[in-house]
């Protein structure tokens, strides 16, 4: 198993504790994370990414226990092995498309992928030197996917990646995510309540409201 979570729970200060079902995922597999608002989807995603540390339980990615890593080692591990796609692209506006990808390479201290090739794959090679502000929503989301993929991560986490896109772009983004994850053998976790996505991924993990 590439990704494994066991008896995870997390409590925000002054709120009842949220517990999450155990689950595991192999490389190349994809899972949809569904649930109502407040069921803790984003919290779960943050725990998987090591952005929050669990009150109880642990997340193991490729043999590494995330909660055992501290400080910069956790940051570096995340940068090297986990790619995150957010609801909004959130690119660094001061940089060009290519520089955004190079920044991800610099911060993770890895030089694995080639930004140019990846942009080619995602069909936005022509935008490499474009300022981020000039991209359309769909293009920007593809660049943010490229940024998540540039370090060939073991785990790709996507938080509502299609919610602000039209049908055509949503379709492309999902196809891209699935295709690229399969290509590099990464586990893919998508949080969504977008019906268009549900039909694309068969494996589903449903979170119950507390």
């Amino acid at each position: 198993m590439l990704l494994q979570s066991t008896s995870l729970s997390f409590a925000y200060p002054g709120q009842p504790s949220l517990s999450f079902p155990d689950f595991s995922l192999s490389g190349g597999e994809a899972v949809l994370l569904l649930g109502n608002s407040g069921s803790g989807k984003t919290t779960f995603l943050n725990l998987l990414a090591g952005l929050l540390s669990p009150g109880h339980g642990q997340v193991i990615l490729d043999g590494t226990v995330l909660s055992a890593l501290q400080g910069h080692r956790l940051d570096l591990f995340r940068g090297q092995h986990i790619g995150i796609v957010f609801q909004k692209p959130h690119l660094i506006a001061a940089l060009t498309v290519k520089q955004n990808l190079e920044l991800a390479q610099f911060l993770s201290k890895k030089k694995r992928g080639s930004p140019a090739d990846l942009l080619q794959d995602l069909g936005i090679a022509g935008k490499a030197s474009a300022a981020v502000g000039t991209l359309s929503e769909g293009e920007a989301q593809r660049v943010s996917i490229a940024r998540a993929l540039i370090n060939t991560p073991k785990l790709i986490l996507a938080d509502e990646p299609t919610s602000s896109l039209d049908d055509e772009h949503a379709q492309r983004v999902i196809t891209l995510l699935k295709g690229e994850a399969a290509k590099i053998g990464a586990a893919l976790v998508i949080v969504t309540h977008d019906q268009r996505v549900k039909s694309e991924v068969s494996q589903v993990l449903e979170l119950k409201s507390a």
Binding site: H72, R78, G79, H90, I92, L107, K109
Partner: peptide, 16 residues
Amino acid sequence: KYDLAILRTLGASRAQ
């Protein structure tokens, strides 16, 4: 602030 958070998810440390 959002940029900073993104940088952290990309592997930047607090010190960076």
